[in-house]
C-alpha cells in the first residue's frame, strides 16, 4: 500500500507538469490550421482521449483475464477502476467530437465507422458497469463483469471492421476526416506530447480509483468484523 501511495504522488506531480505543458503546446506552440482554424486544436485532446480510453479498456481486458485465472480480488478492483476511467475518456471523445465536427463537417454527428464504434464502445462499457452493480452477489458480479470485459474488448475491433465494411460498400454522404496524412511537425509534436500527458493522467486517475476501491473494501471488511 505504501509503494502505491508513493507511485501515486510521483504520478500526480508528473501529470501536473505534463498537462501544463500539453496546454502550452496545444494553444500556443501548435500552428493554427489553415482551413479549420482554431477549432482544429480540439484534435489534440480528442485523439489523446480516444487513445487513453483504448488503453484503459485494454487494462480492463488484461485485469479481467488475470482475475478469472487467479481469482484475486485486486485484479477485479483494477478492472473496475480502469472501466470507470475508460468511460470517462470515451465520453470526452464523444463530447469533443461533435464540437469539432459541427464547424468542420457541418453536422454534429455522422454514422461513420469510427464514430459509431466509439458510441457502441461507450454502450458496452456502461453495460459492463451495470452488470457489476446489478448483480446481487458481489463475488459473482465480479466474475460476470470479467467475462463481459473480455468479450467487450475482443468485440471492439470486430465492431469497427464490420461497420467499416458496411459503410465502404454503402458510402456515407459526409466526408471522413482525413488528417494525419499531412501533419505539420509542430502539430505532430503537440499530438505526441498530448498522448503522453493523457496517458499519464489516465494512470494517475487509475491509481486514485484503485486506492479508493481498496479503502472501500477495507471499510466493508471492518464493518463485517465488528
Amino acid at each position: 500500500m505504501k509503494s502505491i501511495k508513493t507511485a501515486h504522488l510521483v504520478m500526480i506531480l508528473l501529470t501536473f507538469i505534463a498537462v501544463e505543458m500539453a496546454l502550452y503546446l496545444t494553444f500556443l506552440y501548435a500552428p493554427t490550421e489553415k482551413i479549420m482554424g482554431d477549432v482544429q486544436r480540439i484534435f489534440y485532446f480528442h485523439v489523446s482521449a480516444a487513445w487513453a480510453s483504448f488503453l484503459a479498456f485494454f487494462f480492463v481486458f488484461i485485469a479481467s483475464i488475470a482475475f478469472l485465472r487467479t481469482g484475486k480480488a485486486h485484479w477485479d478492483r483494477l478492472a473496475a477502476s480502469a472501466a470507470e476511467i475508460g468511460i470517462l475518456f470515451i465520453s470526452i471523445v464523444l463530447l469533443t467530437g461533435p464540437l469539432w465536427a459541427k464547424p468542420v463537417w457541418g453536422v454534429y454527428w455522422t454514422w461513420d465507422a469510427r464514430l459509431t464504434t466509439s458510441l457502441v464502445l461507450w454502450l458496452i462499457y456502461i453495460a459492463y458497469l451495470m452488470v457489476r452493480s446489478y448483480t446481487t452477489d458481489a463475488e459473482r458480479g465480479a466474475k460476470f463483469a470479467a467475462v463481459f470485459g473480455i468479450i467487450g474488448f475482443i468485440d471492439v475491433p470486430v465492431v469497427y471492421m464490420s461497420i467499416r465494411w458496411w459503410r465502404t460498400l454503402h458510402p456515407a454522404p459526409v466526408i471522413a476526416g482525413g488528417e494525419g496524412s499531412g501533419l505539420a511537425p509542430e502539430m505532430l509534436h503537440t499530438l505526441l506530447f498530448n498522448l503522453f500527458a493523457f496517458s499519464s493522467l489516465l494512470i494517475t486517475l487509475l491509481i486514485l480509483s484503485y486506492r479508493i476501491s481498496t479503502l472501500e473494501q477495507r471499510v466493508q471488511a471492518l464493518k463485517h468484523h465488528s
Binding site: 457502441v120 465492431v159 461497420i163
Partner: peptide, 8 residues
C-alpha cells in the same frame, strides 16, 4: 449487454 456486442 446483447445488442451492442452483437452489432457485427
Amino acid at each position: 449487454m446483447l445488442f451492442p456486442v452483437t452489432v457485427p
